Amino acid sequence: MPRGLSGAAGPGGSGTTGGRYETPQASELQRLMWTKNGTSGHLDRVLPRIYVGDMYAAKDKRTLHAHRITHVLNAADGKFNVNTGARFYRDTKITYHGVEAFDVPSFNMSRFFAPAADFIKNALSSPTAKVLVHCVMGQSRSSTLVLAYLMIHENRTLADAIRAVSAGRNISPNAGFLEQLRQLDKELNSRRAGI
């Protein structure tokens, strides 16, 4: 386990200091993702009723039906990405939400954190719902939105969210997305601490 993520603060100032959590450095978070506990299939269950997948899984209605997927969050929506949309699923009972994001570090993914997290939360309010969050490869954009959901609605720290998701799938948010998640982590932890 990387220094500072086991509860004691390391030289980088991460972990907890006197009982107070501090957001780990990006390099420490990346090491958490390098554990390779997860897989890299087309569709992997990362948490109860939450799946992360790639564009092939998103377009395979038979597989979606077999996994009883009821909601799809496309983190790579649009004609230059994975152009499915609600019309693609019109012959199914799938509820669709699209985010037109590009997998480049300069892209502002943080503006989609709350709407995507709310979509997942609302979907999971039904006890039989299952959500697929996907992008092209199922590693950067999709995992970023699942991590944001866990932080916003399940009150997890970024490090805990990464541990949870990477246990079921190999994930790799790009450097810009990871920095935006670190910023979210800092904001949420300040709110929790009443700062």
Rank of each mutant, 00 (worst) to 15 (best):
T128W: 06
E22H: 15
V52F: 03
F177Y: 13
P24N: 07
H65D: 11
W34D: 14
M1K: 04
T95M: 11
L184N: 00
R156M: 15
S27M: 01
F102K: 13
L132N: 00
S125A: 13
L158S: 03
V52A: 07
T70Q: 07
L181S: 07
K36E: 11
M151I: 10
Q30G: 03
D60K: 03
H67L: 15
K121H: 07
D44Q: 06
E100K: 09
I152R: 07
T144Y: 05
N108V: 04
R90I: 12
Y56D: 05
D160Q: 13
R156K: 15
G78R: 03
G15Q: 08
A101I: 10
L178S: 04
F107Y: 12
Q180H: 11
L188V: 10
T39F: 08
G18N: 15
Y56N: 05
D160M: 05
R68Q: 11
A175N: 04
T16V: 13
V136C: 11
A57S: 00
G13M: 12
V72A: 13
P11F: 08
L147R: 02
R87E: 15
H42F: 05
Q25N: 07
T70A: 09
L181F: 07
T63M: 14
I152L: 15
R111Y: 08
F102H: 14
N108Y: 03
R182Y: 02
E179I: 09
E187K: 14
L5S: 02
M33N: 00
G13A: 13
I162M: 01
G13H: 13
G78W: 04
I195G: 15
D91T: 09
I50Y: 00
Y21P: 06
H134E: 08
A8N: 12
F177G: 05
S190K: 14
V72Y: 10
G15S: 10
L145P: 06
P115Y: 02
L158G: 03
G78E: 05
S27C: 01
A26C: 09
D44E: 10
I69D: 05
A123W: 04
A66W: 08
G12M: 07
L147G: 03
Y56H: 06
S142F: 01
M33K: 00
Y89F: 15
W34C: 13
N74L: 02
R191F: 08
R68H: 11
R111A: 11
N37Y: 13
F112M: 03
G194R: 05
A161C: 11
N83W: 08
E154N: 14
I171V: 08
F113C: 03
A175F: 01
V52R: 00
P115H: 02
L64W: 00
L29W: 00
N37V: 07
A9W: 05
A8E: 13
E179F: 06
V46E: 01
Q139G: 06
L132M: 03
A117V: 00
V99Y: 07
Q180N: 12
A116Y: 03
P173L: 01
N81G: 08
D54Q: 04
N81K: 09
